[in-house]
Simulated scan of single mutants.
Amino acid sequence: MKILVVGGTRYFGIPVVNALLAKGHNVTIATRGNVKVDFEGEVSYVVLDRMDSSSVKRALDNHRFDVIIDKIAYSSNDVKALLENVSCDRYIQMSTCSVYPCEHAGITEDEFVTSEYPLEWMDRIKDYEKTKRNAERAVLEYMDLSACTFVRYPVVLGENDYTGRLRFYIEHIKNEHSMNVDDLDVAMSFIHEKEAGEFMAYLVDHPVCGAVNGCSNGDIRISEIISCAEKKLDKKAILDENGDAAPFNGLKDALTFSTEKAKEAGYIFSDLNSWIYKLIDYEI
């Protein structure tokens, strides 16, 4: 199939592209042209600013793809700039589990219904939840829901995580810096960067209508992350309410997600325990 990947040269965009190439798809990557990657196969590039409608039009006007995988749709205006200038049979958007209004264990896709959300045309704003809800909703102005997939991930971790969220805990323990962790016992879901990419590629050949959650099986408590790092480093964490605020503060309840819909499509996610402790070792 002829596939456009918008934002495929960074983090888990790379395993998206490699998985598509392994399946023999014809891949074009839309980027700003700042980064070139040695993929596991040949790809084509188009250079554009996806937030600028005229830039997208110059690069992609009159192009049609079997599938568009949109990894960097952060606002409704991002979606507008793209979909008013290029067409496709199917559209897959990397959304986020942050669209869900309530935190609890076992969140299912129907807890945020894209079609029922009141659309606002907006640029990228600091209210991440609001802007991503609008990014989902904007797609339905251009395509039928039956041709759309919204992939909702929790926090993505991996060796190439440029945000340093897991590294925060390890470095604070290693350097004996105090940190403020507001709930040691909160349980969270995560997904590894490689699997996050591979699942999006899987959806090209195994379409899912509407929203679908993706995360590793199982969860982990912040206290377990800290305890593992303490043992590996042979140092104790310095916990202090006046210390540096930890990345996952602010949760009021467990934050885990059902992946039954993905299982129905034939995809089984890995167990969290199969990689999270290896990743802690890697960071150390």
Rank of each mutant, 00 (worst) to 15 (best):
E195W: 03
L166M: 15
M200R: 04
G164H: 10
R133I: 05
L251Q: 09
I170T: 13
E241F: 02
R167A: 15
I220N: 05
L255P: 00
L255D: 00
G218I: 03
N160F: 09
E171K: 15
K263P: 00
E193A: 12
I225D: 07
G197D: 08
S274C: 09
N249F: 08
F168W: 10
G243Y: 01
I225Y: 06
D205G: 05
A147V: 15
G210N: 08
E136M: 05
Y202L: 04
A254L: 01
D127Y: 08
G266H: 04
R152L: 10
A147K: 15
K252L: 13
E141A: 14
K231F: 01
C209V: 15
N273D: 15
V151Y: 10
G243F: 01
K252C: 10
V186L: 04
I226E: 08
L272I: 07
S178D: 01
S146L: 13
S178P: 02
L255C: 13
A138H: 08
A229E: 03
I170P: 00
I268M: 11
L203H: 04
D244E: 13
I220G: 03
V151M: 13
I222N: 05
L184I: 08
K263V: 00
G266P: 03
P247C: 12
D182R: 12
M200V: 06
Y169I: 15
F199P: 00
L203E: 01
F150A: 11
K132M: 11
S223R: 13
D253H: 13
K231S: 13
T131M: 12
Y169V: 14
A147P: 01
S270A: 08
S258G: 06
V208C: 03
F168C: 11
A187G: 05
L255E: 00
S146C: 14
Y169K: 09
Y128Q: 08
G243E: 06
D253C: 03
F199V: 14
E241A: 13
